[in-house]
Design a protein around this nucleic acid. Structure first.
Lengths: 348, 348
DNA sequence: GCCTATCTTGAAACCGGTTTCAACGCAAGT
DNA sequence: ACTTGCGTTGAAACCGGTTTCAAGATAGGC
């Protein structure tokens, strides 16, 4: 272990050296505050001599405009509120990353707050953002009732990501989970599987419900009888995957394929299968959901439904900026595509 | 595909309904602005009747104080700047998550900016944060020269995460990568391995360099000759892991164990090994770094050096708040612990 | 040469809070 | 009765910008 651990702060006072203001620049350049402001914003034409004098002064004094004052005076904070959900799913992490990336260079900075996928926390967090006078709101997932959102949208430019809201077509970007669930299941059926275990995500989570719907639809369409024994109600964790498989095997349910709630669950399932001497894909086929980075390097590489998480975040961020500026934009539904790799085999 | 895709925004103007201000409350409660402010902040004792009148007014008018105005007047923005690095490593994602979590309920909100691990971008991003008058700075990793940081620290409460800076003991939380590299290697040596391949991360990345140092130290200590053929210079991606193993095998380098730059690299290595018919751990032992969530559910579960990423983020965030308030705090070095699972076997 | 349109410019109001300062009311001390 | 002192209170200054407004300068039209 190195030396300097468990050190206590020395409580040195933080000197509040006051920053240079627009007035300092004005004095230095022998003009008025107004003129300095005009130079900064290119709002009105300014005499070339004074302009250069101001720019000169800004450079020598190392001027950095106070965004807070600017926000107050201008009525725009150049800040966006992002409500995230720390449910630990890499999908949501990637969304957030995409948002940061999509905002780079736009002049807007994101403030992140956590909703914890609980209505009360989310409401509180949104209030915080409103208090901070964000110019727009980006809601990632979450549980806020649609009536409240409709109200919110009246006051503030709002875009919702990863939720399907009726009447929000152009302010809502999400993925068709029913269709995705259908395609994943269909893929397994096409490969001859009939006994397909479904490892559901969190009970109340709309993603989980919708994918289940797609699963059921594919079964019906193929004339396969639905068997509730094949359904395991869990969450989105790896542990949930191992518990599911253990439980399935313990109660003697016969299955030849597994459709997991997401890739993490698929990893857990894969591990549990191998513990029971079942090989993937030789004995049991496996399909995940998300296509997180690790999935391409699992052994075997995981066949999964690819969700374009980063792209969605980026698109949403850019759209929000347009929305604030009242510029036209397109918020395209991004497709979730079957990423075929090596965890599914034809049933022999 | 569902109906409403590719819809264009209707460009409906966003109504700027002005929020209720402190003056509205004052009028409604028949007191002055000052008194309202005092009630809000509990700064001076206020007559009980007036206090309740004010609170009443706030409730009926649905008052939400303007944080921007407050920041300008009070000189504190209650905002923290967080510089992240989008290098795609889950370790850094987890740090950011930890920061958000550690700030919840503190009254401070984080503004995230991306440094992309490039000096110019980082400098620019930090300027943005200063312009926004953040009360403190949290730098996650990055490449800013230490002289600039020392300067920065004079103006602003600053804490650096995941970097080892001399003279920053109490404002810097990181992990001893040399020690960690040493322990990981030692673990393999203890199990009889001598031909240990090292899959290095990005060349310039200090984490990679330090772990390499630890690796070399362990080898020397055990009297094992260093062989540069066993070193593969890559990055922190899964692809890097497969390329490393492929390259090692292609050039006929004999090895019985692999120490990967991080878990993602380990996954890639694991996959490449299995492609070559080599089993983990029977034929080749494997150690990763990070202990990301997936690693416990890999097949076999990955032995890895656990970095407490979320905890570090949380600790750093809490420490920063203390630092701003000039309260004493401890910024403990968190240990990186060997997480023994099933990817290492005794050399037969 | 005179009037008007346009370009520049500074003073002052404003954004919505916090904080200083002086004044007032009232109870206690002598 | 007269200070003294404390607890309350509102007016006004202030934070650092933006924006309105009116005035002065300049140029163009006749």
């Amino acid at each position: 272990m190195p030396d300097a651990c468990h050190l206590t702060s020395e409580s040195e006072p933080m000197q509040q050296r006051s920053e240079t203001t627009i007035q300092d620049i004005a004095d230095h350049a022998h003009v008025s505050k107004s003129t300095v402001s005009r130079v900064m914003n290119n709002s009105t034409s300014v005499n070339e001599d004074k302009r250069t004098a101001v720019l000169e002064a800004m450079k020598t004094l190392g001027f950095e405009p106070n965004l807070v004052a600017r926000s107050l005076a201008g009525g725009r904070s150049m800040t966006l509120g992002v409500l995230t959900q720390n449910i630990g799913s890499p999908f949501y992490d990637s969304l957030a990353q995409g948002v940061i990336r999509g905002l780079a260079g736009s002049g807007y900075s994101p403030i992140f707050v956590d909703g914890q996928w609980q209505q009360s926390t989310e409401a509180e967090s949104i209030r915080t953002l409103i208090g901070r006078r964000v110019d727009g709101l980006l809601l990632i997932g979450g549980d806020v009732p649609v009536e409240q959102l409709n109200e919110l949208r009246q006051r503030l430019a709002t875009i919702v990501v990863a939720r399907d809201l009726v009447g929000w077509q152009n302010q809502c970007i999400h993925v068709d989970n029913v269709q995705a669930g259908y395609e994943a299941t269909k893929h397994l059926i096409d490969f001859g599987h009939q006994r397909i275990a479904l490892l559901r995500g969190i009970k109340e989570h709309p993603d989980a419900t919708q994918r289940f719907e797609g699963y059921a639809k594919a079964l019906t369409e193929a004339g396969i009888e639905f068997d509730s024994d094949l359904i395991f109600q869990g969450d989105f964790s790896g542990q949930s995957g191992v518990m599911a498989v253990n439980s399935l095997i313990a109660r003697g349910t016969h299955f030849t394929a597994v459709f997991a709630a997401n890739d993490m669950v698929a990893f857990g399932a894969r591990l549990a299968l191998s513990r029971h001497g079942l090989r993937v894909p030789d004995d049991v086929s496996l399909v995940g959901f998300d296509d997180q980075a690790e999935s391409a390097f699992a052994t075997p590489p995981l066949t999964t439904m690819r969700q374009p998480a980063v792209e969605m975040g980026t698109a949403a961020a850019k759209a929000l900026v347009k929305l604030i500026h009242n510029e036209p934009y397109e918020l395209a539904c991004l497709p979730v595509e079957l990423q075929i790799r090596e965890s599914v085999a034809r049933l022999r």
